[in-house]
Design a protein around this nucleic acid. Structure first.
Lengths: 207, 207
DNA sequence: GTCATCATGTAAGCCGTTACATGATTGC
DNA sequence: GCAATCATGTAACGGCTTACATGATGAC
């Protein structure tokens, strides 16, 4: 019920600082590297749901200086500055700035460490993007699970490829998919090396 | 309305030869290189829908589920089973083998060439896996559209990466995503080179 | 004063999943 | 005869998209 990728992404962003809904769309794509841009039709209902269940709350106007200043767009920043100078409590009327609650932090940790969550590419990427909130042990568990899955997929792709009943185009797709999985696997293994390295040596050397 | 990836995949498989539902699950994953294995809960309803709309039909030589239900006695069914097994090479009773219709072929061509279809990675891969059914001109259109999209995504990822407000893990995700898109782009460009090469120097008629 | 952008929300619906329910075939 | 696999289907629901509806603000 709570294994939604989107909830995890939103809570993850709110762990760092307060955000309003509109901003979350960009941030999820940029900072959390979601493949496709999220639509508002999924963000606002998600925020409403998270608020109903007490995982986030609407922040007071005064606390949102930082979030208003880092909107990202030049005009938006100027607007915030002007609003601040003129003494308006909320620069842009209508903005609803959300803040994560204590309950939300707890839910976030559970969601992030959820053993049924990092299976697919999207859930895994998201969890790595938020991996600074995981303990080293949980990071390693997550990485090893992903490694196993990728290894199996690679095996599957290779056996398909060697069966030879494919035309040139279909074969090209399989070959490319194989390279993609190999790349993913190398990434996971390099992350695992980093974890073990950090664990054993205080000062990680740069390669 | 008809931009379903699954319909395209099923029709694409049936273009080559008849299949039954259970078989399609494996084939879609293996030959068409779907990332995740399809569930039966999506295949059977899809086949039923395609049959209702006349794009596929149940091939001769197999007893349909409905007709089996209307048969009277159990022993009678067993008898007919034995007859089927001795008479036909594919004696497995209960299999429903589907065949694409003329209407289905037409719908397949439209779906495959649909200019709103090859945007995402999955739809694009699928279309390339089926690219032998496309004309060279449509192949090039598809490839160029995908190239444009990947180029834009790459630009986006690079600008995110250079903005520098990311921790090590989040940065690693962006870097890896960038490599992935670069790999995709190289693939698309190599496919485009092949198309142009075939066009200028080779016999375009292929199986 | 009007247009682009910022900002929030609702409604309908698509596409697919998981879980459930049933039965046939093959191999031991 | 029993288990594993092959094979087909339904029900309920999940998570997301598109399209719609509304309005503020800033730039020109």
């Amino acid at each position: 019920m709570m294994n939604r990728v989107l909830d995890l992404a939103i809570l993850g962003l709110l762990m760092e600082r307060d955000h309003h809904g509109y901003e979350i769309r960009t941030e999820v794509r940029e900072r959390l590297t979601f493949g496709a841009p999220l639509s508002f039709g999924s963000i606002y209902p998600a925020l409403a749901r998270l608020e109903r269940t007490g995982l986030v709350e609407v922040a007071d106007g005064t606390t949102s200086f930082a979030s208003r200043l880092s909107t990202g767009s030049l005009s938006g920043e100027r607007a915030s500055l002007r609003a601040l100078r003129s003494g308006t409590p909320l620069g842009r009327r209508g903005r609803k700035v959300y803040r994560i609650t204590a309950q939300g932090r707890e839910a976030f940790s559970e969601l992030l460490a959820d053993p049924n969550g990092g299976d697919d590419s999207r859930g895994f990427s998201l969890r790595i993007a938020l991996a600074k909130y995981l303990t080293p042990a949980l990071r390693i568990t997550l990485l090893e699970r992903r490694r196993t899955e990728l290894t199996e997929r690679l095996e599957e792709l290779r056996s398909t490829s060697s069966r030879g009943h494919l035309d040139d185009y279909a074969r090209s797709v399989v070959t490319h998919a194989t390279r993609g999985v190999e790349l993913d696997l190398e990434w996971v293994e390099s992350l695992l090396r980093d974890e073990h390295h950090d664990h054993h040596f205080a000062d990680p050397a740069k390669s």
